[in-house]
């Protein structure tokens, strides 16, 4: 096994399992669509709430996409093969996150113009929202994969994984929505964006190592 053959097969499998990614995307759209229907369809409510609505829906659908990231690998024994491949496990985990991130976040971003139009988000704020997603979502994946690897060997692991992971998502959600709010109020939002980037970079450093440790503990 080499790093490139691993990455290639990860993309191939994600492509063959595109229904899962599509489900997460559909879930995202449904949650966002429920707010105008269920709460208030007027721009006076939707425009200020749009950032929060989109971020909460995005977090839930990303959790959905991450939850089963290791399940198949664990059951068919390929996790064991990764551990015994002689390649660096943290690096393999990093590649896995990057592949998953690309396959989930790119469709999410593509659907974003439609949804922000639906929620009356001003176009200047739209780009700030996209920036928060680009800078903040990597940390969601990095943190989420640790939880996914930790709970993969448990039979009822998915609920536990969400309980473990969600608290670590709060700071990301808070800084992301505050950046959108600040942009809407015409204030400076670069501080919040910097915090998002900092969190993603920090989790980039910590997560692959932690995920590798969790994978080793799970196959043990």
């Amino acid at each position: 096994m080499t790093y490139s053959s691993f990455l290639q097969s990860e993309f191939l499998i994600l492509w063959r399992r595109k229904q899962d990614v599509l489900n997460a995307l559909l879930f995202f759209i449904l949650v966002v669509a429920l707010f105008p229907i269920g709460v208030d369809p007027s721009p006076a409510f939707l425009a200020p709430a749009a950032g929060g609505i989109i971020w909460c829906a995005a977090v839930l659908s990303i959790l959905m996409a991450i939850e089963g990231a290791f399940k198949e690998d664990y059951l068919d024994g390929s996790l064991e093969q990764l551990v015994t491949s002689g390649l660096s496990l943290p690096l393999l985990m990093l590649l896995k996150v990057l592949a998953l991130w690309g396959c989930v976040v790119v469709p999410l971003l593509l659907i974003m113009p439609l949804l922000s139009e639906m929620l009356f988000l001003p176009s200047t704020v739209f780009w700030v929202l996209i920036l928060t997603l680009l800078l903040g979502s990597p940390s969601l994946f990095f943190i989420g994969l640790i939880g996914s690897a930790l709970t993969v060997s448990l039979r009822q692991g998915s609920m536990l994984m969400m309980l473990l992971i969600l608290p670590f998502y709060f700071p990301v959600i808070i800084f992301a929505t505050s950046a959108v709010h600040a942009a809407q109020a015409g204030l400076s939002y670069s501080g919040s964006l910097a915090m998002l980037l900092a969190m993603s970079l920090l989790s980039l450093v910590v997560s692959p190592v932690m995920t590798a440790i969790a994978v080793k503990a799970s196959v043990n």
């Binding site: 080499t2 097969s9 690998d73 024994g77 093969q81």
Partner: peptide
């Protein structure tokens, strides 16, 4: 070492050839 465990580590969603290319590129 070449280790083949009880769960053999063959991916269901890859074809036979893709599986072997994954393992021995």
């Amino acid at each position: 070492t070449l280790y083949i465990g009880h769960a053999v580590g063959v991916k269901r969603l890859l074809s036979v050839e893709e599986n072997l290319r994954w393992y021995c590129p």
